[in-house]
Amino acid sequence: MTRAPQETIIVDAYRIACDGGGGSGGHPRVWLQIPKDVGWVVCPYCDTRYVHRDFEGTVD
């Protein structure tokens, strides 16, 4: 079963770091690679979706 992402963030890089925003909602920092053919990736800890700017508006 797939859950919907909590938040979508538009980024300019294909390799990004996610720490869940810190505080009580944070998690260990992980580095995520956005596949250049897909344009987005979801953090396995917090379900935040990172979309590369080149794919903005094309990802549901």
Rank of each mutant, 00 (worst) to 15 (best):
M1H: 13
M1P: 09
T2K: 14
T2E: 15
T2Q: 14
R3E: 14
R3D: 11
A4I: 09
P5L: 01
P5I: 01
Q6G: 01
Q6L: 10
Q6F: 03
Q6S: 07
E7R: 13
T8L: 01
T8H: 12
T8C: 08
I9E: 10
I9C: 06
I9D: 05
I9M: 10
I9F: 03
I10R: 04
A13L: 04
Y14Q: 00
Y14T: 00
Y14E: 00
R15S: 10
R15K: 11
I16W: 06
I16L: 10
I16R: 04
I16F: 08
A17V: 06
A17N: 12
A17Y: 05
A17Q: 13
C18R: 05
C18N: 10
D19G: 11
G20V: 05
G20K: 02
G20S: 08
G22Q: 09
G23A: 13
S24A: 14
G26M: 11
G26H: 11
G26W: 11
G26C: 09
P28M: 12
P28C: 08
P28V: 13
R29W: 07
R29T: 15
R29A: 15
R29E: 15
V30R: 13
V30K: 11
W31Q: 09
W31S: 12
W31T: 12
L32A: 06
L32K: 03
Q33K: 06
Q33E: 14
I34W: 07
K36W: 00
D37S: 02
V38G: 01
V38R: 15
V38S: 06
G39D: 04
W40K: 00
W40D: 03
W40V: 00
V41Y: 01
V42Q: 14
V42E: 14
C43E: 04
C43R: 03
C43Q: 02
C43Y: 05
C43G: 05
C43A: 05
P44E: 11
P44L: 02
P44Y: 08
Y45N: 15
Y45A: 12
C46L: 03
C46E: 04
D47E: 10
D47A: 14
T48D: 08
T48E: 04
T48Q: 03
T48I: 14
T48G: 01
R49L: 05
Y50L: 11
Y50I: 03
Y50C: 03
V51K: 04
V51L: 04
H52K: 10
H52S: 10
D54S: 11
D54A: 12
E56C: 04
E56Q: 15
G57W: 09
T58K: 15
V59K: 10
V59G: 07
D60E: 15
D60I: 04
D60W: 02
